[in-house]
């Protein structure tokens, strides 16, 4: 693993490898998604308790899973940046943050659309919903902090610090929300064990969404590397022009 991450440290090599990898991941995603949707809509029965509404679960659970996995990935990348100074770590963290926010938002949205028929209201201050909402706030904080800082190197390290602070407080936040929830209402337990007929579609959809995220993440990382190249080239061009007309510029400055 270490050797793989080390070999990937060269952005040019990463660009070559990701260009070769991206079509494969994309097609695998499409195939899994089609199969998963077939299972979710046609080949699985309605739940005896939730009725047809259970079909929302097949997209809600993958989104919720991604919302946590992506934060883990950002934390890991941040660690890679601050400790190992891996050159691609910040590219990975920066590319993942908006994707994570999007999937967390989708998890909240599909959760509340599932909650209306099940609970009779769009929003319940259920322990899990509340934790995901707080996770969404953490994503917003990461994105806002990065966009507020102009110096890209400083922005990378500061958002990495914030991501690590967030990930170390996340268990405490989760624990406190659970505590708070049991304090205020009897726990509404809808988490009966997953029926075997649901397990396969859930698994396939989760896999499809995970692959889809990795495809998006690779593409976003490629874009980010290109963006940095463009920026570097522009700076180089300006520097070259300055050297060319240095005497004129100096005269104007003095």
């Amino acid at each position: 693993m270490q050797t793989l991450t080390q070999r990937l440290a060269n952005p040019t090599r990463f660009m070559e490898l990701s260009a070769r990898l991206l079509p494969w991941i994309s097609w695998a995603t499409v195939i899994l998604l089609v199969y998963g949707l077939y299972l979710a809509f046609l080949a699985s029965p309605a739940d005896y308790q939730q009725g047809e509404t259970v079909r929302i679960m097949y997209i809600h659970v993958p989104c919720a899973w991604l919302s946590m996995m992506i934060y883990g990935l950002i934390a890991l990348s941040s660690f890679g940046l601050l400790v190992f100074r891996h050159p691609l770590a910040d590219v990975s963290a920066k590319a993942a943050a908006p994707l994570g926010a999007a999937f967390t938002f989708l998890a909240l949205l599909t959760g509340s659309l599932w909650g209306k028929p099940m609970w009779g209201t769009y929003w319940v201050w259920d322990a899990r919903l509340t934790s995901v909402l707080l996770l969404f706030f953490l994503y917003l904080g990461l994105i806002a902090l990065r966009s507020a800082l102009e110096d890209e190197g400083a922005a990378a390290k500061l958002t990495a610090v914030l991501a690590l602070v967030g990930v170390s407080l996340l268990p405490i936040i989760k624990f406190s929300v659970d505590w708070w929830n049991t304090l205020h209402q009897p726990s509404t337990d809808f988490t009966s064990t997953v029926d075997p007929s649901m397990r396969l579609p859930l698994l396939i959809m989760a896999l499809a969404f995970t692959l889809m995220f990795f495809a998006m993440h690779l593409k976003a990382m490629r874009n980010e590397i290109l963006r940095r190249r463009v920026k570097a080239l522009r700076a180089q061009a300006v520097a070259g022009r300055d050297r060319f007309g240095a005497s004129a510029a100096q005269g104007a400055a003095e």
């Binding site: 809509f41 046609l42 309605a46 009725g51 047809e52 509404t53 079909r55 929302i56 997209i59 809600h60 989104c63 994707l99 999007a102 938002f105 989708l106 949205l109 599909t110 659309l113 599932w114 209306k116 028929p117 889809m212 998006m216």
Partner: peptide, 25 residues
């Protein structure tokens, strides 16, 4: 395909995910 009385919620959530994912791509 009959999705019962709550079909609108199911379609709406799938539509939201589809729109967001396509938007991202």
């Amino acid at each position: 395909m009959d999705l019962g009385p709550h079909a609108a919620f199911i379609w709406l959530s799938y539509a939201a995910v589809t729109v967001t994912v396509i938007g991202l791509i």
